[in-house]
Amino acid sequence: MKQSARRKGLKQVFLYIVWIALTLITLFPIYWMFLISARSRVELFSNRNLYQTTIFWENFVRPLFQGVYGQYVVNSLIVATGNTLLVVVLAVLAAYALSRYRVKGGQNIFFWTITNRMAPPAAFMLPLFLLYSRVLRIGDLQLYDTHIGLILVYCVFNLPFAIWLLKGIIDGIPTSLDDAARVDGASTVGIIRRIIVPLAAPGIAITALLAWIFAWNEFLFATTLTSVKARTITTGLVEFVTVVGTNWGEMAAMAIISLLPALLFLVLVQRYIIAGLTFGAVRE
């Protein structure tokens, strides 16, 4: 008996070693980026320490307040938030329809929406670029280089994803609740608003969070479909890498900035992440 307790203790120690090692591996690249962002150009190549006592604020201040990156951050915020709102509203409606009704060819519609998510953006970039800049335009009005253009285009990957997550969650809400409300004379929209949304709230929250992060992180569409006015922070990062040399410190600083919201959200909802990721694969 005593021996098994000791074995158990050893196992615990082993587990902790594995997890601490993993944590270090996970955090090191990000920590290194932080170090780089805190060093000036000269210090970068002379200081090889794995710790830092001073912070070279210039790296953060110059691009944000003197350069265009402040505007890029604002653009990213507008696009990600707009897209998330649009996606969540539409996805709740669509997931409800796919979950509660037998729609003709519902399976095929579902497959098609997922294909959109899976399609390589590289394959869609050329046609979208041509459509946005040449075909879908009325006079000077065009979708190219606008916030609304990006908000729409991000639906390609966020909407199917959101529908997929939410359908699994709505499937888990018993239909008897809908029926009861319907007997009481509630409309479909009323049912969605008063029953589905409150009950699926954690799921909706995690969906919104993930959609927001995906939109915030997106790069390829943003870089091909914008030029000046609607450029986002990820596209800005690439602009640091130039032929005349890269300002690594400022790039790392902007990368850190682009990490912050994701980190914040992760801390807020970490307990729901696992519950939200079942993809409807397991019936409860």
């Binding site: 980026m33 997106e218 992760l266 970490q270 992440i273």
Partner: peptide
């Protein structure tokens, strides 16, 4: 540990490229 483990997921692919 789970939260730390989930961290790389929230990092933009482009930023991952930059850190590496």
């Amino acid at each position: 540990f789970r939260a730390i483990h989930a961290l790389p997921l929230t990092v933009a692919p482009l930023v991952v490229g930059a850190t590496w």
